[in-house]
């Protein structure tokens, strides 16, 4: 079973959850990252996600290993989508199971924050008046290949 995947197809949420089911678990948390239409009033039409797939899988595995070391008894599964995504589509699903619920919430939050730091995946935002690769995990830097102005993007 592949616990860490980059997928060109829509992510099946339940399939990710099923990977972390374990008899020792008292909790499973699931994070579902979706494509948002409005960022500070700016309307996104759709996104393109691109990955350095081989390295992205390795970095997802690293995040999983960090979690399993930090939260005893945890199991992690992560699938990240690539390609064109429309508004409301699912970009990422993270499932974490742990013996106790507090750990499941914490560890899941840790996973998404680490993805935004170290996993080589990029998104290109398409708006009505332009497109741009988003520059960093905080979405505060854009790399315009057209419009809009950077001030419109600050999040």
């Amino acid at each position: 079973m592949k616990m860490y995947e980059i997928s060109k197809e829509p992510i099946e949420i339940q399939a990710v959850i099923d990977k972390v089911v374990q008899r020792e678990a008292g909790a499973i948390t699931t994070f579902i990252g979706t494509v948002r239409e409005l960022t500070h009033g700016k309307k996104t039409l759709f996104l393109i996600y691109e990955a350095y797939e081989a390295m992205a899988v390795k970095k997802l595995e690293q995040i999983g290993a960090e979690i399993e070391e930090r939260w005893a008894g945890s199991q992690v599964a992560i699938t990240h989508r690539v390609g064109r995504l429309d508004i409301t589509d699912i970009a990422v699903v993270i499932a974490v199971s742990t013996p106790h619920r507090a750990d499941a919430y914490e560890a899941n939050r840790y996973a998404i924050e680490r993805i935004k730091e170290i996993v080589p995946i990029w998104k290109k935002e398409h708006w009505e008046d332009g497109e741009s690769w988003m520059g960093n995990q905080l979405e505060t830097v854009a790399y315009p290949s057209g419009k809009p102005e950077e001030g419109d993007l600050n999040e």
Binding site: A51, Y52, A91, K116, I118, K123, M134, Y143
Partner: peptide, 8 residues
Amino acid sequence: FIPPVSGG
């Protein structure tokens, strides 16, 4: 070469 990442 890995530009600042923006997955998630």
